[in-house]
Design a protein around this nucleic acid. Sequence first.
DNA 1: TTGTAGGCGTTATCAC
DNA 2: GTGATAACGCCTACAA
Lengths: 350, 350
Amino acid sequence: MRVSIKDIAKVAGVSHSTVSRALSGSPLVNAETKSRIQSLAREMGYSPDAQARSLVMGRTLTLGVVVTRLTDPFIAEIVQAIEDTAHEYGYSVVLASSSAESEREIAAVEMLHSKRVDGVIVTSSRVGALYQQYLDRLGVPVVLINSHREEQGPYTFSITVDNRHGGYLATRHLLDLGHDCVAYVTGPANHSDDLERMKGYCQALTEVGIEFQPELVVPGTGRVEGGEIAFSRLMDLKHPPTGVFCYNDMTAIGLLRAARVSGLSIPEELSIVGFDDIPFASYVNPPLTTIAQPISQMGWQAVKMVLALIGESSEETRWVSNVIVQGRLIVRGSSGARGDKKILSGGISS
Amino acid sequence: MRVSIKDIAKVAGVSHSTVSRALSGSPLVNAETKSRIQSLAREMGYSPDAQARSLVMGRTLTLGVVVTRLTDPFIAEIVQAIEDTAHEYGYSVVLASSSAESEREIAAVEMLHSKRVDGVIVTSSRVGALYQQYLDRLGVPVVLINSHREEQGPYTFSITVDNRHGGYLATRHLLDLGHDCVAYVTGPANHSDDLERMKGYCQALTEVGIEFQPELVVPGTGRVEGGEIAFSRLMDLKHPPTGVFCYNDMTAIGLLRAARVSGLSIPEELSIVGFDDIPFASYVNPPLTTIAQPISQMGWQAVKMVLALIGESSEETRWVSNVIVQGRLIVRGSSGARGDKKILSGGISS
DNA sequence: TTGTAGGCGTTATCAC
DNA sequence: GTGATAACGCCTACAA
């Protein structure tokens, strides 16, 4: 049924090693027989068995990618960038999603281990000590994107956005617009990104001499619904904020939506800033002011790092180190000066 | 370095076949030695080599997934559903994105072939005769999701949304609202989904006795920018439409955005209907009326079909056949009765 | 330039 | 119960 080099060898009247050599373009084989074998292979519909090959070669030309959920546009964009870059270097991608459940996350790593991937990229995960052990056991390079880890691993490097700085930029932007009561809506509980962003929030407050108020920090989930709930919590306060910095864009969109439902106009009555700059950030109404992460660059760079660690890329392994990238503030329509009461249902604000 | 069953055998003082049996839980091995070997394997950090295993077993427990681009939220959601379902059945997923370039698409299939995946799922592609040949050569079941194919393949089945019916529903909705001048913004050129949706559009027009007008069909790209361009084209017409059915939600969002920029209010002055019901459809302002595809069900079903064809699932192979799923109309705020002039910057419309 | 033989890590089929 | 032994499909010394 399936044609192997032996089958070709039989038809060509040579040994399977000659076929192997001919197909790998080895110079130590008669030019004529070589081309004869090659066209024969094509005719017979030969396809090399990658498994058998990697079994002897010791590498699979495959990268494992572990994500929480692909429906997060931020993650989808990273994976796309990873796949593109991997393809460019002749690598393919095995995908595993974990739904942020540590059990599935470990199962994913175990699976990738069995598949003998040459490297692993993990996105947006919280890497606990237990998890780190599994990563170490892999014995292949691991690059963490925007993932917090509790322990250092020998083979593990990371690419992270500077969350503290991003949180600072966002909050400072609101403060500079004249808002003196600025809230923060958190992400999923105990996420280190979240804590860092909040640190930046605090830093900005301190810098302008505004006291931190615990009630102005309300929990979100990192999803739209979380933002909606946070909105009503904030509006129920004795002194509702006039500016809100949100853990991410999804949360901010939740606030936007809840505000619209409740008839509150943005940014006239409430300024909102998100984080991530997902593709949709500019399509919502009003377009979202946010902190942009260089998303596809991070995916691209993760692959380059893994390949460098494998020794595949021309880059030297010793050049590899943890990377912190800076986000940048993108000002759009969801934030405005305090007390800046524009005409309702205003015109162009893009 | 890496520990194999032979290494375990050496330490345990048994043969490698006994180790193999013990680890696969075979009953024909002494209960005591079995557990001894099992704990030994754990201590030594043994991980079975999936490649070696599938080499002899003849199956890889791996599914190949070919997509155009993951940044399309519709596709991301499908892939998520595929991964979830595959995982549930003990299968893993190799991902390949093609950017809709037929060259990369074929390269992807070639790669999946070499990797000896047990089945392939292709999403949102146009499967030409050439491509179909490659799929056939795979010798494994292929399920096409929302993909048009020119030729039948022996192993190839498909899951498609009823595009004609969806287009009909959308257009009929607009007509029922009193719009008598309804436009259609197309998707990427020569896409069969697009043609089918337009057929539904035409059918609805015919049904209510409105003549089809070619100038009311303007080209889009399936992306936001395409919708924006289409908007100005439509508004430049002598008789601009009061209702627009768009190839997909991204296009509709482009129109929404362009309308906002130009100060046109939705749905008072223009009703817009999309297609897909991507997650963001309900978050834009106004929320988008659209045709919902049962996205994750399609992903889920694709995996079930592949597994049934492999003979993995309990379902019988002969039960498998092409599936056409029906979309359904989701009425939200972007469409309204003609001449229904609500107060600008209106209240709740969700 | 080509063929032979061994091995990659498994599972499976035999004997013992 | 357990241990040789032969596959699976490929690559690569080593020999010829």
